[in-house]
Design a protein around this nucleic acid. Structure first.
Lengths: 192, 192
DNA sequence: CCCATTTGCCTAAACGCTTTAGGCAAATGC
DNA sequence: GCATTTGCCTAAAGCGTTTAGGCAAATGGG
């Protein structure tokens, strides 16, 4: 019997591509086995189970996105860095909707702590160094930016902004203008 | 054989409760049948299939959340309305994580157009009437608010903000302060 | 009140995905 | 060249989905 040369790595990469083609939810060990022209049981030497496969795809996507975002911000600061970072997120979601969905998979705390997710947070903090935010406002801002990026890409992928004017591209740049303005002028906590 | 009195309505409500207990992803026709102490096939007289069931739960959650949000904003305007609306979203996500996840289910365009999702958008626009935003900025702002609410609740549910200071409650109010300030001072498009 | 019709839940069965156990053959290395 | 390891296999069990067809409980007209 010919050996195909399965590895965890190859399965994960193929799983990521499959996610972009048919949607992350639809990625299944069976479908993946079909792609490799291999019996399903053969995958179980390389991944623990179906959940493990999905988690690995998620980690792969998180790392890939972090690499892209890091490339995008390299050598930039201030609004320049913010928009480059933001566009990296949105572009990834548009080019690789399945991987982006994978990157939104809920991970258990230890897995998340060991994932590229922490690089995402660190990069966001680095970008905020271009603005004048002391703690705890910096953390609030990190969470705001994470929410906006996560939420926007998610809604856009769901088709929420298509078929209506203005187009999503324009909204995205205007939202970034707005966020830049907000970060430059972050309001002090109200004194009650 | 005793009749249990299944209806589509009862299945959907029970499905929503089940979602809060075990997670929306885990809601399955089989599990629902078990809860009603009924054979799985019996459900298929009331829902077309598993996808139909999930979609109905999603529509139920969207409508319930829209009702709550409408209650919350009733009689309020400006920042008051904004924060009441936002808290309705976040509270729903915390009280009913499964239903909130259901409300984020991707719907096909026609279903979405006939859902309470349009009420959500209308309410957001109504709140923005308390701010001075002309089109297309109003649409940009609607999309920003949708992204923030959607994203924040999603990340919070995933545990993204737990076990780290400051606590999520504080971040949420400070984000709303920031959004209020931003909406009162929405930047004009840069003139290139 | 009885009988016909409708309705609700059932059994049976097929199909697909997941997962484990155990086997054989190809690759590896001494 | 042979022993060991490794990789993919077959087999089988378990569970969720879905359809087809059946029987009994509810419903309602005469």
């Amino acid at each position: 019997m010919a050996r195909v040369g399965l590895t965890t790595e190859r399965l994960v990469r193929a799983g990521a591509e499959l996610a972009d083609e048919i949607g992350f939810e639809q990625v299944t060990a069976s479908e993946l086995a079909r792609r490799f022209d291999v019996k399903v049981a053969s995958l179980y030497s390389h991944v623990k189970n179906s959940q493990d496969l999905k988690t690995r795809i998620a980690l792969f996507a998180l790392a890939e996105l972090a690499d892209r975002a890091a490339d995008a911000v390299a050598g930039r600061a201030g609004k320049d860095a913010l928009t480059a970072f933001a566009h990296a997120y949105r572009d990834y979601g548009r080019e690789h909707p399945g991987r982006a969905a994978a990157a939104r998979l809920r991970l258990d705390p230890e897995t998340a702590a060991a994932s590229a997710g922490v690089r995402h947070a660190q990069m966001t903090r680095a970008i905020l160094r271009g603005y004048d935010l002391a703690e705890p406002d910096q953390t609030h801002a990190v969470r705001l930016l994470g929410s906006v990026f996560h939420g926007y890409v998610s809604l856009e992928t769901a088709g929420g902004f298509s078929h209506s004017a203005p187009d999503s591209e324009e909204t995205w740049t205007r939202i970034l203008d707005a966020l830049d303005a907000l970060l430059r002028n972050w309001p002090a906590p109200p004194t009650p």
